[in-house]
Amino acid sequence: IDVRFTVNGLDVTVRVRTEEIAERVKELAKNGVDWREIQRIAEELNK
């Protein structure tokens, strides 16, 4: 599942395995978490 969001004007796409992880990623993006941090968290959750 590809999750797309915009952080500080940057369009970011993170690929995740499940809808649940996708929701977590969207939540982080909404809360203004840095995209590199979101990427790292997504990689952890995908394991």
Rank of each mutant, 00 (worst) to 15 (best):
E37H: 04
V16T: 05
K30A: 14
I38P: 00
N46S: 05
V33I: 11
A29H: 14
T13K: 07
T18V: 02
A29W: 15
Q39G: 06
I38R: 00
D34G: 11
T6R: 11
T13F: 11
I1M: 09
E37T: 11
E27A: 11
Q39A: 10
V12L: 11
R4M: 14
I41E: 05
W35L: 15
K30W: 07
N46Q: 02
A29Q: 07
A42Q: 01
N46F: 03
E44V: 08
T6Q: 12
N8E: 09
R4D: 06
F5D: 01
V7C: 04
K30R: 13
G32Q: 07
E20C: 09
I1S: 05
R40K: 12
I21Q: 06
V12C: 09
Q39F: 10
N8A: 09
D2L: 14
T6P: 05
V7H: 08
I38L: 07
E44L: 07
N31S: 14
G32M: 08
D11T: 15
E44W: 09
L10H: 14
E44T: 07
L45H: 03
A42K: 01
R24M: 14
N46K: 02
R17K: 14
W35Y: 13
R24N: 04
T13H: 10
L45Y: 06
V33P: 01
K30Q: 12
V25Q: 00
R40M: 11
L45W: 11
G32T: 04
F5W: 10
F5E: 01
T18I: 02
E27I: 09
K26W: 09
T13C: 09
V25D: 00
G9K: 03
R36W: 13
E23K: 13
E43L: 08
N31H: 11
Q39V: 15
V3C: 05
N46P: 02
E19Q: 14
T18H: 04
I21G: 03
R17Y: 14
K26D: 03
V33Q: 05
R17W: 13
T6W: 10
N8L: 07
E20L: 09
R36T: 14
R4G: 07
V16M: 02
G9D: 06
V12M: 11
A29L: 13
E20D: 11
Q39K: 12
E19R: 11
E27R: 06
A42Y: 03
E23V: 10
E23Y: 09
I21W: 02
D2H: 09
K30L: 13
R17N: 14
D11K: 11
A42V: 15
D11L: 14
F5R: 00
G9A: 04
T13I: 15
N31A: 14
R36D: 14
R24G: 02
E44R: 06
D2N: 11
N31I: 11
R15G: 04
R4I: 15
E23F: 10
K30D: 10
